[in-house]
Design a protein around this nucleic acid. Structure first.
Lengths: 130, 130
DNA sequence: AGGCTTTGTTGCGGAACCGGAACGGTACCT
DNA sequence: AGGTACCGTTCCGGTTCCGCAACAAAGCCT
């Protein structure tokens, strides 16, 4: 079965109500936990850097994430302070900044992924087939 | 099969990587769309009101969502301005205010749920069993 | 009635965020 | 070398958010 993004695989089955419940559970668990609370844009940026193929430039991120360049710069500042992401000058074109992953960022995302999976496991499927 | 929350049903199967991909996809789609961008706490509050059984008081919400009372009040102000939620004095104990759902809020949440489901459908399962 | 507790709201200072515009640094082009 | 285009950052003004503390209103209790 071919998915819309062009890859192959079995689609994740998730009914609408389950999706809401999942989102709810993860958000609440996130607020309880001591993880740093990131802005929606910061979250999106972080995930995008880790889940989309490089290279990631400021301008590119701003375009695909639909935010202004200054917003991207500031988000990188914050994520950099948290050591979740790192800036590196592009030696080929020294105007560009390449956003790179870090070990600490990978650890954080793995923990977050476990939180999502754990939350999902607690949600009963209402109409299952989605 | 009994879930941790006490209800019955088949658990949502979601591998860790799929969870991250889902979160990423929804966040990015949300930034692109014209939906009002709510704070993490505002999202959590809204979802909690709609997915958890009433009654919902300010103090109760503050406790379960782990945020200060003023933060709840202001979140209610914003969600109320958006007509996603409504305040109602508790006639039994006039100190309390009961947070109630609205039609517009329900519509918004349904659209959001569809977005989640649609995004999930595009994610190939990597190791399927979660 | 008087005092005490509880509930939600508001004031206040501080911090974070956003977008538009201006800026320095780099690349390209003639 | 000079001019132009592009990239990321910084500056600026305005908005939003947060928590703590103080507050009015309502209940409770003797």
């Amino acid at each position: 079965m071919r998915n819309r993004n062009g890859t192959f695989g079995v689609a994740v089955k998730l009914s609408e109500n389950s999706g809401l419940a999942l989102w709810h559970g993860v958000l609440v668990a996130g607020l309880r936990g001591d993880l740093p609370d990131l802005t929606t844009r910061q979250q999106a940026l972080l995930l995008h850097v880790y889940l989309s193929p490089p290279p990631h430039t400021v301008r590119g991120l701003a375009a695909t994430l639909n935010m202004s360049k200054p917003a991207v710069t500031r988000a990188l500042d914050r994520l950099g302070r948290l050591d979740f992401v790192r800036r590196k000058r592009d030696e080929a074109d020294k105007r560009n900044i390449l956003v790179q992953r870090t070990v600490k960022g990978a650890v954080f995302l793995r923990e977050f992924a476990e939180l999502v999976a754990r939350t999902a496991a607690d949600i009963p499927t209402d109409t299952a087939a989605g």
